[in-house]
Amino acid sequence: MELIKKLKINNELGLHARAAAKIVEVASKYRSKLYLRKGDQEADGSSILSILTLACPKGTEIEARAVGEDSEAMMEALSDLVNRNFDEEK
């Protein structure tokens, strides 16, 4: 099953190393594959380097795509993480 969802990066620092690492953690918890798209660039959600090269500062809109049997749960965990602003301290 494939799920696509638009997410807005709202934390202060954007998708920097710590936030990217948290996305990788989510991606590794589920069997589905995770991809993140910004414009015409797509990143592998299980690769911290790949996510970093997307270079998403605060306010960036990205498109998350989860492919696999548990894509729903994965997407939920991901949007939860993004909405919590990656638990970043203000």
Partner: peptide, 12 residues
């Protein structure tokens, strides 16, 4: 932890 992650990273 990031360094550990990089070593597992597909690009690396």
């Amino acid at each position: 932890d990031t360094h550990l992650m990089i070593m597992d990273d597909s690009m690396f």
